[in-house]
Amino acid sequence: MKVGKRRKVNKQTRNRYIWAYIFILPQFIVFFGLSLYPIIMSYVYSFYDWTGIGPLNKFVGFSNYISVFKEEKFWNAFKNTFIYTAGFTMVSVSAALVLALILNNPKLKGIGIYRTIYFLPVVTTTAIIGIIMKNIFGNQGLINEALKIIGVIDQAVPWLINPVTAMIVLIIVGSWKEIGIIMIYWLTGLQMIPRELYEAAHIDGAGYWQTLRHITLPLLAPIGATIILLTTVSSMHVFDLVKTLTGGGPYYSTETLELYIYRFAFASDGISQVGYASTVGVILGLTVFIISLGLGWVVMRVNKSRADAGVQG
């Protein structure tokens, strides 16, 4: 390509290049075998009628796609995924922001300990959390017992048996689990704000709330948009928690798309419909892709308007 520019590479440099290729080779193999190949095949399977066993030879074109769109339970799972994502993003992003604002105060003692405590759920296994929470929100579980003692309720609330409360519990537990990590994202954003700005605001006589409103929050907007993008995309794929906490019940009312796909791909009763499941997988992937494109556009706009404002100011 760049024949004109190509200079004679000496032996030592060529040797370095060869070693660099050798260093990349293992990652390259893993990349093709374990990442790219599955991605391509996840599309291919969606055009076949296939149970997952035996040869892949019943090509059916788009007929899986047509039957997915006709399926009522698919739309139910689609709707549940959006409810969960919207609820989870709103609760966790805003609660994490409040926590980060409190913990960003350098004069506050014990920040390290608080950060550890609020971060702890993040590192724990989601599947195990689901099982623990299933018990805690059970009819004779900790939550009902505690609420009875406080006197808020006098009869046990069937949290996981009522479709509405089951979804609320999912959102609360999911948020509780991830708030710590989102808090770290916010804290990173807060630490990127130059100290001088606060000092200048202080000299100008601005109080805490004024500084928050006119300096901190506007400057956090770019990273905030990125955080919303990250949390939305990850929560669209929620699986571990739903599988272990509600199992999609009561009667499919909390079944998200990942759970729906799993149910068809690895049917515990009857024959798996891998082709059909793959189709739903593709639809989910494309939906997430479109949403992230949209949110990505917002992120760029926010960053751009900030940059413009920076030039003017």
């Binding site: 599955p38 095949m41 996840s42 997988g281 593709v282 989910l284 992937g285």
Partner: peptide, 10 residues
């Protein structure tokens, strides 16, 4: 950034 389907099966 590539949208992917249900890659666990492949």
């Amino acid at each position: 950034f590539i949208p992917s389907g249900y890659t666990i099966i492949p």
